[in-house]
Design a protein around this nucleic acid. Structure first.
Length: 191
DNA sequence: TGCCCGATTAACT
DNA sequence: GTTAATCGGGCAA
């Protein structure tokens, strides 16, 4: 049986939690799969929503770890984050891609007739496939309908610059499962 | 108050 | 490669 991730899993540095999430399994109401791509956002990071202090939108980031922070992106898409570090640190991990393993029919229905590789390849696509919206903002990650399971064995984790940001662009805080076909974008391999 | 930009995506040319 | 969709936050006026 897979080991459930406890809430304390998230009460550590985002830069420890983020790579540890690669290969873990995320389910929402039984739909989801294996996490293959995430990005870390620390409160001291100019690219983080929490950098300039609390607002109505980012309030959950300033709360305790182990909760979902969901925000609207470009006024259109939803993006799912896991709050990390001790309460008040306002740091979180953005879920960018998962390898679909459960509830494929539900994902295809929500996403349209999409290629399986594109069902959850990107933060907005992932939320659409799983049915994540503002309603899930602030929900605990170790309580239904969320379920998280630790990865079994090891995973080959690669790191690189984050995607779609204009500040702190050189920080290698994007983490992924090496060679996965379900990434939102390939990692450039070291020369 | 108004304007610009953004942790994006799909549908264009 | 370019663009539209569309809304919350930051900042100037």
């Amino acid at each position: 049986m897979r080991k459930r991730l406890s809430r304390s899993f998230f009460g550590r540095s985002v830069h420890q939690v983020a790579p540890d999430l690669i290969g873990a399994t995320l389910l929402f109401a039984g739909v989801g799969g294996r996490i293959v791509e995430v990005e870390a956002y620390h409160h001291s990071d100019p690219a983080a929503h929490s950098f300039r202090g609390p607002t109505e939108r980012n309030a959950v980031m300033f709360g305790p770890p182990g909760y979902a922070y969901v925000y609207r992106s470009y006024g259109i898409h939803w993006c799912l984050n896991f709050v990390c570090e001790p309460e008040g640190s306002a740091s979180a991990v953005l879920l960018r891609a998962i390898e679909p393993t459960a509830g494929l029919a539900a994902m295809r229905r929500r996403r349209g007739l999409a290629d399986e590789r594109l069902l959850c390849a990107g933060p907005g696509r992932l939320c659409e496939a799983l049915g994540i919206t503002r309603k899930q903002n602030g929900l605990a990650l170790d309580v239904a309908p969320f379920a998280l399971f630790a990865r079994q064995g090891t995973a080959e984790v690669v790191a690189g610059p984050r995607i779609g940001i204009s500040k702190a662009v050189d920080e290698p805080w994007r983490y992924g499962l090496r060679g996965s076909p379900f990434l939102s974008k390939k990692f450039s391999l070291p020369a």
